[in-house]
Nucleic acid binder design. Structure first.
Lengths: 141, 141
DNA sequence: ATAAATCTCGACCTTCTTAGTCAAGAAAGA
DNA sequence: TCTTTCTTGACTAAGAAGGTCGAGATTTAT
């Protein structure tokens, strides 16, 4: 498992917004229902995503969330990197817990794990939200 | 972080055994000291690793652990797959918790995450314990 | 035989992360 | 001003990760 449930919810929420782009703000409750995400949890997630620059919101009657980037401009890597927070914490793929790498990137596994990390993010960076919308459940190559 | 601390310890222990291959059994306490692994925890880990077919042990005076495969025949992927246990649990890279994939591999992310998983394991499968011994701390390309 | 060295086994504990909930409040429009 | 909808931050629960311990079984040395 590379991606936590929470981060998968974040991706799903953005996919849902992409599907409905152009028809005005989408209510949290609609996104939650469409993507089977616990409503209260989604509130937290969307609140965070506002900081990403990909989504914005409007309050009050007829309010909701909407994308402020074209879905083909947002990559899965963008979203996941944002959700993971402080990149310094994760720049050493061998490091387990939070905080800076105590080995200063010089442990036996640094090279190996960093190569693995790059391989994964290469794939995530090549895949856009639009790709997910297009391939949703239908199997893309 | 792709690899838990425990699994990194497992790799380190095997690397240490590889370094000392041919000089008889190595005591847990020596491995623990050489690789800075908590002794009691290492007991657990080596106990598990005995099931892998890569290491064996000998009890009593002058006992210890030793490799029963050549280090260039053991890949990082082998070790990690073994340590992760039941492969059915992990065959869907999108699945978060234990048990079989509830979506039957048909969720929106299955293709994407499985590609990522394959990319990582390609690297792990190409890297042998001998490679780690050779490159230990010195930076391999 | 007996003692010492060493692995073996299973239960146990602690800490951290992940996942998820809730209540009260602020803004926008009808 | 009432309703709708997002906003904020604290709170809780469950599980995984990391680590410890004591008592027992085996092997070798003496």
């Amino acid at each position: 498992m590379f991606v936590t449930q929470k981060n998968q919810y974040a991706l799903k929420a953005i996919v849902e917004l992409a599907k409905r782009a152009g028809s005005g703000p989408v209510k949290i409750s609609e996104i939650a229902q469409a993507q089977s995400i616990p409503l209260r949890f989604l509130e937290v997630i969307l609140g965070q995503l506002k900081g990403s620059g990909f989504v914005a919101s409007k309050r009050g009657y007829c309010g909701g969330y909407f994308l402020i980037c074209r879905p083909e401009k947002i990559s899965v890597g963008h979203v996941l990197r944002f959700m993971q927070g402080d990149p310094a914490r994760h720049s050493c793929a061998a490091c387990v817990s939070r905080g800076a790498c105590p080995m200063e990137y010089d442990c036996a596994f640094a090279t190996l794990f960093n190569r693995a990390s790059e391989a994964v993010f290469k794939i995530f960076d090549e895949t856009t939200i639009q790709d997910l919308v297009d391939g949703d459940t239908k199997g893309s190559s």
